[in-house]
Amino acid sequence: MNMRTPLGKVRGLGSAKDGTEHFWHQRLTAVANVPLVLIGLYLVVSLTGAPYSEVYQTLSSPLAAIFLFLFSFSVLSHMRLGMQVVIEDYVHGEFTKVLLVMFNTFFVMFTGALILYAIFKLSFGG
């Protein structure tokens, strides 16, 4: 049973009703992105101009799959939050704003699905 008073439940949540979650997740993913992006840069640079067999072999290793999953999850979360702020700052029409914030999520989900498919196929696709 929840013993908190109605006032206590809403305190600190603000007008968006999610408190500091957006702010905190933006920072959390920002910190995670630093090492992940550095590894990602190393990975891409090391594969520039490499033949397909080498690219395939590198990307289909378990370590690459785990890295790509973490990298994508953190980066996609971060960019979804960031784009949401940009939309909320510049789009003032309520309908357009809600629509664009929705499309933002759809775009991020689609990009994520593309990456997940690629990771699965590279790892298990034979």
Binding site: Y52, V55, Y56, L59, L68, S72, V75, L76, M79, G82, M83, V86, F107, T111, G112, L114, I115, Y117, A118, I119, K121, L122, G125
Partner: peptide, 30 residues
Amino acid sequence: HRLTGVGLYFGMFLFAWWLFAAATNQAYFE
């Protein structure tokens, strides 16, 4: 900072496309 963030947002899709290509086949990847 904001502009680069927006640019990277769309650039990430191209990274996903590159990975997708690597997963598809040699001809498409090349």
